[in-house]
Design a protein around this nucleic acid. Structure first.
Length: 703
DNA sequence: CTAGGGTTAG
């Protein structure tokens, strides 16, 4: 007996130790079932084994499992109780953590610190501070956690006071303080600490480098990067994103190629950077070369496609992602929702909404805002409002989404009503809010109200006017026919007028046929946006209408030299969960082309009978000559609407999207089609929404 | 086995 005990003990202890290590390793890899199997097969479970398997469940986001094991374990030590607190905190369950904290027989500094950390994470800094004051003993970790809480709360001066009063500091404390200064853009203070601190490690260096990079001082970041004593993949990634965020993609790629080990995150950052700078093909190369991908990889790629106008590619990636075993989660849902929004594909959007509800992201303000924007862009304001009403508390982004949404649909009253409701609840309006309300006033012709709001924006809300606000007011005045007043406002602006402002003036000139100021605005736009084809064509049309043919020829030469061509007009419609694309003319034939043409002919008969004659004389619309010469009957939006008439069930609105501004002829045709067929047509063009109903359009023929 | 800092994400 004794013999076997002596022989067995060291062996068993070794096995237990080995098994505990196995449990932790499986937990790290996310294989919690394997961890559980090892645990179940252990004949000799120590407290540490129990603690390990509980930690494994928490790490893999299964707090209920962890709890049931905790309740069943035969013996507990301090680490068991503390593990429950930190486990709950990691899973965002501060109240459960607090219950354990209150129930445990005795507490040590770890218990207290974890609990303080829980409140910090929840953003309840007051509670964290109160607990911190009550702590019977504190060590450098507790102080540092509290410091982090103050920094997170943007109380940088309080943080510094705490920092200065700390009895002991270590490298983590210093790094935290530096990070706080960097986040607030106080680079000089950060650097001062960095230079005087006694010891720096790779994380400190990376914090400082990333601080410079995030604040667009990428060259200083690079200097530090070159002299740092050791680098890991995170430091390389910080440098990489510094370049991508400054738009310096070549240097970003250079860093990427030089980095010895490429983590998933660094590849994701590269994909994102390439996507942002328009190199979507290169982004796809990186994507394809990755052996392992995570949700960030997929959402980076999806976003890249979306930002570069390849929405269908973006959309197709979503099911591929799920087939690759990636659950739709926060960033990917946001990306796909914005794809649905930009494509305005309502049925897809609804499906994603269902996924959102299933994954319990629907109460998140970020996701809710994305949902609202999606429904707004799809033209379903009722649904947008439902999401808005259901989500509480609301943040400023949500209020802004709803206000802007109503404004974009020309529902000025509703937009202002939401705005007033927001103010009465004490939510502070910001610059985005005012872009929404001012454009709402503009769309609904509330000149007086708009000007008053513009005044009080600065005086009562202390929001400084940006170029966008000026653009709204220029639009407001211009729309009402006060074009010279609009021009005066531009001349008196305290900041530089940008493309949006001149674009607004141009829009007004277009409607009120003011060729002189249109020429001024278009010339400004050529300077500000040399790649945008619209103003060139418009200016060329103005010259042509005045017989200034030499100017026309010169302009065409400039366009050719700058390699500018107008993107072809295309429209699309979603029918039975499938997106159907149409391009102007008949370059690409739709499978049901015959039926569509038949429908168009039938319509044109009805239109003629209603007294319609085609109108090709919209000089001041930025429609290219070629497009004008083409049969007006074959503009892409007409094809899409014809298809909608064939396939969208009676009683449902026909929702069509177009990448360019709707042309004047199509606009009048749409009104007539809506009247003749009794169908509601919702057309989203590049700028705004048109709800056609019974011979009228919600934009009141101004767009 | 239990507590703190740096990289991607509207």
């Amino acid at each position: 007996m004794l013999f076997s005990v002596i022989r067995c003990r060291p062996f068993c202890t070794g096995a237990v130790l080995y098994a505990n290590t196995q449990i932790s390793r499986y937990a790290r890899l996310g294989h919690v079932e394997n961890a559980r199997r090892v645990f179940d097969e252990m004949s000799d479970k120590s407290i540490i084994s129990w603690n390990s398997i509980i930690a494994a469940y928490f790490q893999n986001k299964l707090p209920q499992e962890a709890r049931s094991l905790f309740d069943r374990m035969p013996d507990r030590n301090m680490a068991s109780w503390n593990g429950m607190i930190s486990g709950y905190v990691k899973n965002g369950m501060t109240r459960e953590a607090r219950r354990i904290f209150d129930a445990m027989p005795e507490r040590n500094v770890v218990s207290w610190t974890s609990m303080v950390r829980g409140y910090v994470q929840e953003g309840v800094i007051v509670e964290a501070e109160s607990l911190f004051r009550q702590m019977p003993e504190k060590n450098v970790v507790s102080w540092t956690v509290m410091l982090g809480g103050l920094i997170q709360d943007h109380r940088i001066d309080d943080a510094r006071r705490l920092f200065d009063g700390m009895p002991v500091k270590d490298v983590v404390t210093w790094t935290n303080m530096i990070s706080g200064y960097c986040q607030g853009g106080h680079l000089a203070e950060a650097r001062e600490l960095f230079d005087v601190m006694p010891r720096r490690n790779v994380i400190t260096w990376t914090t400082m480098i990333s601080g410079y990079a995030q604040n667009l001082q990428v060259d200083i970041a690079r200097k530090l990067f070159e002299v740092m004593p050791e680098k890991n993949e995170i430091s390389w990634t910080a440098m990489l994103t510094g370049y991508t965020q400054s738009g310096r993609i070549k240097e970003a790629v250079e860093i990427f190629e030089r980095m010895p080990e490429k983590s998933i995150i660094s590849c994701n950052a590269m994909i994102l950077g390439l996507g942002q700078s328009g190199n979507v093909t290169e982004a796809r190369c990186v994507f394809d070369r990755m052996r392992e991908k995570d949700d960030g990889t997929w959402s980076a790629m999806i976003k890249g496609y979306e930002r570069n106008g390849l929405q269908l590619e973006a959309l197709n990636m979503f099911p591929l992602m799920q087939r690759a075993g990636i659950k739709p989660n926060f960033p990917s849902l946001i990306s796909v929702l914005s794809v649905c929004a930009s494509l305005a594909i309502l049925a897809h959007g609804r499906q994603i909404h269902a996924t959102v509800v299933k994954s319990q992201f629907d109460l998140d303000v970020f996701v809710a805002s994305a949902l609202i924007t999606m429904y707004v862009k799809c033209g379903d304001l009722v649904k947008a409002r439902q999401v808005f009403d259901r989500c509480s508390p609301k943040d400023i982004v949500m209020w802004n989404s709803m206000i802007t949404g109503y404004a974009q649909h020309g529902l000025g009253e509703e937009a202002l009503q939401v705005f007033h409701e927001m103010c009465s609840l004490g939510m502070a309006a910001d610059d985005v809010t005012f872009v929404g309300v001012l454009s709402a006033c503009s769309y609904t012709g509330k000149v007086k109200e708009g000007l008053e709001l513009f005044e009080s924006m600065r005086l009562n809300y202390s929001v400084e006017p940006t170029a966008e606000h000026y653009a709204c007011i220029v639009d407001l005045l211009g729309r009402a026919g006060h074009i010279n007043e609009a021009m005066n406002l531009i001349e008196k602006m305290t900041i530089e007028a940008d493309a949006v402002v001149w674009g607004a003036l141009l829009g007004a000139c277009r409607t009120h046929k003011n060729l002189e100021l249109a020429e001024v605005a278009a010339k400004k736009l050529l300077l500000l946006e040399p790649k945008n084809a619209g103003p060139y064509i418009l200016l060329s049309n103005i010259y042509a209408s005045k017989g200034r043919w030499e100017d026309v020829v010169d302009l065409r030469k400039v366009m050719k030299a700058r390699n500018i061509s107008k993107s072809p007009g295309c429209s699309w419609i979603e029918v039975e969960n499938k997106v159907h694309m149409f391009t102007g003319g008949d370059s690409v034939e739709h499978a049901e082309h015959g039926a569509i043409v038949g429908m168009l002919e039938k319509l044109s008969g009805l239109l003629r009978a209603a007294g319609y004659s085609p109108d090709g004389s919209f000089v001041l619309h930025d429609v290219d000559e070629e497009q004008k010469v083409h049969n007006l009957g074959y503009h892409s939006e007409k094809l899409a609407v014809a298809f909608g008439l064939l396939r969208v069930p009676e009683g449902m609105p026909i929702r069509v999207m177009k990448n360019l501004r709707v042309c004047g002829d199509c606009h009048s045709v749409m009104k007539l089609i809506a009247k003749i067929t009794g169908r509601e047509i919702i057309l989203r063009d590049a700028n705004r929404f048109h709800h056609f109903k019974g011979g009228l359009c919600s934009c009141r023929d101004y767009w």
